[in-house]
Design a protein around this nucleic acid. Structure first.
Length: 809
DNA sequence: GTTCCAACATTTTTT
DNA sequence: ATGTTGGAAC
């Protein structure tokens, strides 16, 4: 039966007198409402019409959201599959799903809970023809997209160096985020990309259609276009989705906003949850404006504020609100908590980034040990949140040295690794041999003796017969259009694809239909493992596995790891019931969710930290130009500052009990030493809630200048005793171990900093490590260091090493 | 077709 | 500083 008809049937049933069982259900106790505060309760129980839940950090919005969903179902307002619940990330969707399941006790409900993109794919598969696609369309990854754009750029006789494909991809993405199809790009954008932007955009869309493919932006944009052009289709969905819930509404872009508004126009029951103070994705098209004008967009909307914070101590909340206060455009809320105790936020200035890393490593270990009369704070409970990923290196270096376990969150992702993408290209060919992008990727991988010339003639042949490159290659093989050693190998490749494709069809005859999911929960497909074996066969027969196995170890030290990754990939396949299902999952869920149990400190960007919380949070690098980032300020001016400030707010509010903010007055960025000013956000911290720590381990200061208006509150120079007693120095003893022989270098240091040293003194330098003074001239001190390459150092870099510090020679 | 060297860029990131 | 990429030399 067509699910739409079934929906009508259900509606008819719903308008009939409420059966006894329903009433009994309604009378049952509602444990899911227990423990909600009045505001949360209001957010759960306000069912009719548009609702904006303004939920500050740590105010229990997920709890309210899940309770609302459970309530809707328990009260018989809607069935699980009539509730559309949208999130941004797969992680958020997963989390909400499991919480709803836990709360309602039912499993596997909520078929329409997912990310904007995954939901859009499901809708788009049902109506692909309306967008000029077949239901079996593929979803391009960034790699494919860039290669495609590059081809177009070169075809337009443009210099792809001056006009990099990346830039065009960014431009097109921006346009799609604003819901502009090629015809709708306003003329004000005509100058973009050397006046060719719009034209290339149109060509790109044309190519995508020919390839039966979509990029990420298309998933949403096609939906919006279809909804607008086909009111009947839209009406079906409007009728179907009785309630709509949206998480992180402040991050929606124009296209997502339209998507939501179109769908919500039916029942008008849309509940958006968000926090204007946590909008940090403006640079990728998110419109804070969407949340600011919610009441205008949805007339009659109720705004409910969740302001009671259950996460952080009062000092942390005060610090966060002190910073965010500087922003002009805010809906305004005041977080409060009834917790009383808590330590002040700590602010520390360091000499440079390496000292910062060392001191933070110290503190992390000391917290983990539970010193200072505090209960131990496990490593999993601690996180370092940085503004830019290059800041991570200093911490990784340091933590590797002292053996402190850490995990970097949001690093290069599993499915973005080269070997995984290659293997996936083979799978894609097996599923749909016409996938030209996949074909191009692996046709000469492993090397099959097919170079530029051979691939070019395959492409030409394909175009001549208006078929895919797979067919083009077949035709060339048949006619002997390819000469030499490549011919036989190409034949094997073509035949291989045919064989694998036949195997895929054998395993699952109704390929395309399988991709269209029913609106109603289906009986789960019978699990079978043929596709796992097939995947292994493909990787072996293609020679891809042996390519890495035969790779010379010394030239490809990573080959072993790549083979491991391939094994992992095949293992991951087991959880799916077909190759195509797996491919779809990977296209949408580019993440490796291997959650390890081991105790490790987390290192991540502020962006990656949204939605997380940690008892102890370190926020390093609060320097003007780094945070707030120079680029954000240059490109977006005051708006940029405001977004950076929200980022600071997000960072501070991740902390439950301990928050450490720090900056360095000298930092090396891309190998260049830079003198830094403390971030303006440092000045915005309320003094009453911040404890300013004397920077330890320094001589030849320079803090006054770096400290901004805080300078007067901080002792500019550490005393020698500070140096000797600071924990940062003692910790290094544990680093004892064999060190390489070190060449001697001459180093010029500030006479003032050098004063008092004698030949034979052991010293420490932030950049070059431990050394021993071997000669002193009037303004030259010759020092032997463990690191080579020292030629000239500007000023005041040497500290005396403690007597029992490890000296390498 | 492969290897090597020079030029180049280098926030934030999801899907 | 460092990793990637494109072109020239092999």
């Amino acid at each position: 039966m067509d699910p739409w008809d079934e929906n009508d049937a259900f509606e008819a049933a719903a308008s009939a007198p409420v059966p006894l069982s329903q009433r009994a259900l309604a009378a049952r106790p509602k444990p899911y409402l227990d423990g909600l505060n009045p505001a949360q309760l209001e957010a759960v129980l306000t069912l009719e019409g548009p609702v904006l839940m303004l939920a500050g950090a740590g105010t229990g919005k997920t709890k309210a959201l899940t309770a609302r969903i459970v309530h809707l179902m328990r009260e018989g307002r809607a069935r699980a599959n009539e509730i559309l619940a949208v999130t941004f990330t797969n992680k958020a969707a997963r989390e909400m799903k499991s919480r709803v399941e836990a709360m309602s006790g039912s499993e596997g409900g909520m078929p329409w809970m997912g990310t904007f993109h995954s939901l859009s794919v499901r809708i788009l598969r049902r109506h692909a023809e309306l967008a000029g696609l077949k239901p079996s369309f593929t979803i391009l990854d960034t790699d494919d997209q860039l290669r495609l754009l590059k081809q177009l750029i070169q075809a337009a006789n443009m210099d792809d160096k001056r006009w990099p494909p990346r830039m065009l991809a960014g431009l097109i993405d921006t346009w799609k985020n604003r819901a502009w199809t090629p015809e709708k790009v306003p003329s004000s954008e005509a100058g973009a990309y050397d006046n060719k932007g719009t034209e290339l955009y149109a060509q790109y869309q044309e190519r995508l259609r020919a390839l039966n493919a979509c990029d990420f932006g298309d998933l949403l944009l096609h939906c919006v276009t279809i909804f607008r052009a086909h009111p009947d289709v839209l009406a079906q969905y409007q009728r179907w989705f009785k309630y709509i819930l949206v998480d992180e509404y402040q991050d929606t872009n124009v296209c997502q906003y339209l998507w939501l508004r179109l769908l919500a126009q039916g029942h008008q029951n849309i509940c958006c949850v968000g926090d204007d103070d946590q909008s940090i994705y403006g640079w990728r098209g998110a419109e804070v404006g969407n949340i600011l004008k919610f009441e205008k967009d949805f007339p009659g909307a109720k705004v409910i504020r969740l302001e009671q914070n259950y996460r952080s101590t009062p000092h942390i909340l005060a610090a966060a609100s002190g910073v965010i206060r500087g922003n002009a455009d805010r809906l305004g809320k005041t977080l409060w908590t009834d917790v009383e105790e808590g330590e002040k936020v700590r602010l520390t200035g360091y000499w440079d980034g390496e000292e910062e890393a060392r001191a933070i490593g110290e503190e992390i270990e000391s917290l983990a040990r539970g010193t200072r009369g505090r209960l131990p704070v496990g490593l999993n409970a601690q996180a370092i949140l940085v503004r830019a990923s290059h800041q991570m290196r200093a911490f990784e270096d340091r933590f590797l040295t002292i053996g402190l376990p850490y995990r970097v969150i949001g690093g290069p992702r599993f499915y973005e690794r080269q070997e995984i993408r290659d293997a996936m290209a083979y799978f894609r060919l097996a599923v749909s041999p016409d996938d030209d992008l996949a074909f191009e990727r692996v046709v000469n991988l492993p090397k099959r003796g097919l170079g530029d010339r051979a691939t070019a003639s395959i492409r030409t042949e394909a175009r001549r017969i208006s078929m895919s490159q797979h067919e083009g290659a077949r035709s060339l093989v048949a006619t002997g259009g390819i000469g030499g050693k490549g011919a036989g190998q190409l034949r094997q490749f073509v035949e291989g694809i045919d064989r694998w494709h036949a195997a895929v069809l054998g395993a699952r005859p109704d390929t395309a239909d399988q991709l269209i999911e029913p609106l109603l929960p289906d009986t789960p497909p019978a699990t079978q493992s043929g596709h796992v074996r097939l995947a292994e066969t493909i990787l072996e027969e293609s020679g891809y596995v042996s390519m890495w196995q035969n790779a010379e170890k010394d030239k490809n030290p990573e080959a072993e790891g790549r083979l491991e990754n391939l094994k992992e990939l095949v293992k991951a396949l087991e959880q799916f019931d077909s190759l195509q299902g797996f491919l779809e999952h990977v296209a949408l869920v580019m993440e490796n969710d291997s959650e390890e149990a081991a105790e490790k400190v987390s290192i991540m960007t502020l962006h990656a930290a949204k939605g997380l919380e940690f008892p102890a949070v370190f926020l390093p690098g609060w320097e003007e130009g780094l945070f707030p980032s120079q680029r954000a300020m240059d490109e977006a001016g005051q708006k940029g500052i405001e977004e950076e400030r929200r980022l600071a707010y997000v960072g501070i509010t991740r902390a439950e009990e301990l928050c450490y903010i720090s900056f360095a007055s000298n930092r090396r960025v891309y190998g260049q030493w830079q003198s830094q000013m403390a971030s303006r956000f440092v000045d915005e911290l309320p003094v009453a809630d911040v404890e300013i720590l004397t920077p330890p381990g320094l001589m030849g200061g320079g803090y006054g200048a770096a400290m901004g208006s805080f300078g007067s509150d901080i002792e500019a120079r550490a005393t020698k005793a500070d140096v000797y007693n600071s924990p940062g120095w003692r910790r290094l003893q544990n680093n004892a171990g064999p060190r390489p022989a070190t060449p001697r270098r001459t180093m010029t240091i500030d006479p003032e900093a050098g004063a008092g040293f004698e030949i034979g003194d052991r010293v420490f330098n932030q950049k070059f490590g431990y050394g021993r003074i071997i000669d002193i001239e009037v303004d030259t001190v010759e020092i032997a260091f463990e690191k080579a390459g020292v030629k000239h150092v500007k000023a005041g870099f040497v500290t005396p090493a403690k007597a029992d510090d490890e000296i390498p020679f």
